[in-house]
């Protein structure tokens, strides 16, 4: 088990990053820190996909000097999936940040507990 961990160190790092991001997302009280945690989780997933998509000894799937055998190239689909994920995560981050800005302008705090207390005071 230990030797596999050393060979697949990219995946191990991705898992650790994912857990760090998830803990941030759940345990932090500050909204901005929650968003940062979600972004760390995103990055861990991209790292995992990119690490899984690469095969040692093969090159990028770009045709130079004629087409070689299928064995010479890696599959570009994991990279495409990572691209999709990056675009969606940019959109989601922008959306969450703008919602956070609106919350801050309404309540003048980013702490979730304080916001909840203010909401209770308003009777919501």
């Amino acid at each position: 088990m230990g030797s596999n961990l050393i060979v697949n160190y990219g995946e191990a790092v991705a898992m650790i990053l994912f857990v760090i991001g998830f803990a941030n997302l759940l345990l932090q009280n500050n909204l901005i820190k929650k968003i940062i945690g979600l972004n760390i989780m995103d990055s861990a997933v991209y790292l995992f996909l990119a690490e899984k998509g690469y095969i040692v000894g093969r090159t990028v799937p770009i045709v130079v000097n004629g087409v070689q055998s299928v064995e010479a190239y890696i599959n570009p689909i994991p990279a495409g999936l990572v691209l999709t994920g990056i675009v969606v995560s940019v959109s989601v981050s922008a959306l969450m940040l703008s919602l956070t800005i609106r919350l801050y302008r309404r309540y003048h705090t980013l702490n979730l507990d304080e916001i909840a207390a203010l909401l209770q005071k308003e009777g919501l």
Partner: peptide, 10 residues
């Protein structure tokens, strides 16, 4: 859609 939502919100 994300840009439009940000535009609307802000």
């Amino acid at each position: 859609v994300a840009t439009i939502t940000v535009l609307v919100l802000l």
